[in-house]
């Protein structure tokens, strides 16, 4: 046990390192709360990547062309990879993979609430790539400079790979928007349903966000939720205009004075409802994850048994040689 004064001293030293933009690595001393905050954030991030495969997986077999299908498969595979980089980063902090998965499967751990919405049409795959991955990139680029080394390094890889995700989504939207009336309508409908949940992805308003101040001080977070949300709206509004689609917000308007887009109020009741498990697909998503995990148990067991058997055979062979 570290005495309280020593602990305060260590904390000061730690904060000085952070302030000097030094990176923190796994074996370095860190406050318990820094470790806990990171495990929570990184594992939630990992869960989001893994659960995020489900809404899109829904369309893999029904992609309209082979080109779209290979792209979607590659994107979903990337998301599995991103989940693994992130679980790996959480494990450098002493978290156990199994515990993290248990937290997800029991419903205790959170993941991005956006993945609790259904993918009703092919245009949703376009809207997800464009908006959901767009919002994710907005969040993730500053995380490449996060104070914790393994998390920052994982984010560099993720960001490099994710820009293809957003471009393939926008290309789908562009094709539909330039297609038949029915296709254009489908694209507009997808935008209508995904716009507001995408804005909610940045999390509660700064005044309501209980973790923001500490995370900013620790340089885990570089920008506040509202800053990133505003940046997303500013970048995305002209992209929607280029598509000839209408963002479903009557208050959305470029403000000459501020140089930013003003936008209408977010329905936070809906956000908290989805976060607390009452979104359209929460139960379905968790059920699918649990089932995949349970049905894979025998494979994991068999692989381990096989590896053990081979190890024993090899050991027996080596013994024979010695004898």
């Amino acid at each position: 046990m570290t005495a309280p004064t020593d602990y305060a001293h260590l904390e000061d030293q730690f904060q000085a390192r952070i302030d000097a933009e030094e990176k923190i690595e796994p074996k370095d001393w860190m406050p318990d709360k820094y470790r806990k905050t990171l495990i929570r954030q990184i594992s939630q991030h990992a869960h989001s990547e893994i659960v995020g495969m489900l809404p899109e997986g829904n369309w893999v077999t029904r992609a309209p062309s082979l080109r779209r299908k290979v792209a979607l498969l590659a994107k979903v595979q990337d998301e599995a990879g991103h989940g693994l980089y992130l679980y790996g980063a959480a494990e450098t902090l002493g978290a156990e993979r199994d515990d993290l998965l248990d937290e997800l499967h029991s419903g205790n751990a959170k993941y991005s609430s956006i993945f609790n919405y259904p993918t009703l049409s092919w245009a949703d795959i376009g809207a997800i790539g464009w908006l959901v991955d767009g919002a994710a990139i907005m969040n993730q680029v500053p995380l490449c400079r996060c104070s914790y080394g393994p998390y920052a390094r994982a984010m560099v890889r993720v960001c490099k790979e994710e820009s293809f995700h957003q471009r393939q989504g926008y290309e789908i939207m562009l094709t539909l928007a330039r297609g038949t009336e029915a296709q254009k309508k489908m694209a507009q409908d997808a935008l209508n349903r995904w716009w507001w949940p995408s804005l909610m992805m940045f999390g509660p308003n700064d005044a309501e966000s209980k973790h923001t101040a500490q995370s900013m001080a620790w340089k885990i977070k570089r920008f506040t939720n509202d800053e990133l949300r505003q940046r997303f709206v500013d970048i995305t509004a002209p992209q929607a205009e280029f598509l000839g689609l209408t963002i479903p917000d009557e208050h959305l308007k470029y403000n000459e004075e501020t140089g930013h887009y003003d936008f209408g109020p977010i329905n936070w009741d809906e956000f908290w409802q989805v976060v607390s498990g009452e979104g359209p697909c929460n139960r379905q998503r968790l059920k699918a994850r649990r089932r995949a995990h349970e049905e894979g148990q025998w494979v994991r067991d068999a692989a381990l048994a096989h590896a053990e058997k081979r190890r024993q055979r090899q050991a027996a062979k080596n013994n024979q040689k010695v004898a």
């Binding site: 980063a89 692989a303 096989h306």
Partner: peptide, 10 residues
């Protein structure tokens, strides 16, 4: 980075 596997080949 790191990952989990049953043996070296995997």
């Amino acid at each position: 980075g790191s990952l989990h596997a049953a043996d070296a080949k995997m």
